[in-house]
Amino acid sequence: MKVLVAVKRVIDYNVKVRVKPDNTGVDLANVKMAMNPFCEIAVEEAVRLKEKGVASEIVVVSIGPKASQEQIRTALALGADRGIHVETDEEVQSLEAAKLLKAVVEKEEPKLVILGKQSIDSDNNQTGQMLAALTGMGQGTFASEVVIEDDKVNVTREVDGGLMTLSLSLPAVVTTDLRLNEPRYASLPNIMKAKKKPLDAMSPADLGVDVAPRLSTLKVEAPAGRQAGVKVEDVAELVDKLKNEAKVI
């Protein structure tokens, strides 16, 4: 079966995020960018399904500026077969991303679509669920285990207070949580091979989707900073302060 994986180019998770002085956003100039960590887990899961003989082809799609092709190449180096780049320099919000992915799903007709549960920049946690609703598919969100059985997929989900397992009819959408797997690193030979794998580029207009945003960001501020507090001499003083000064125990 064919698996479609969506990946997003975001700020590298190790970079310290700085708000621009004019409060219009976060400074992304000359900042290291990388594949969103939850998307890495999505790619890894697809590759494992292929290694088990469950998936026959992995198509990876990314929406974003030209540079997003770096993240598509990374996915290809990890084991995806083919890339699709929906190229735009505009900000694409979750609903519009889901509409673009719906158009790709209609072209490619995958049995399974795997996405990260959220991106670490906008932290929306929406696109997978929106895609599932728009395409009339079932969804297994925040997955920590994915098992394909014939025309069904069993998804174990990380929910508040425990785990929940669902059975979904295929085709279905799965979004990844942290415990699903540990992504591998790409080997140098595979990075070289990935450069020769096919990558199609298209625009939102080619897919017939209007990506005009519905939400406008009025301002972005740094969070109220914390002041360093006091150093205590010993454990007894610490417990005394927690009990009598902070009153939290």
């Binding site: 919000q93 979750s94 609903l95 889901a98 932290d123 929306n124 946690n125 929406q126 696109t127 997978g128 669920q129 929106m130 895609l131 599932a132 609703a133 728009l134 969804q139 969100t141 925040f142 989900r157 990380e158 929910v159 508040d160 945003p213 519905r214 939400l215």
Partner: peptide, 21 residues
Amino acid sequence: TTGKDFMPRVAALLDVAQVSD
């Protein structure tokens, strides 16, 4: 985890954006 699961479906079905969290 319940609200995060179904609310984006609601937004998509109504063709509106969602504001999260």
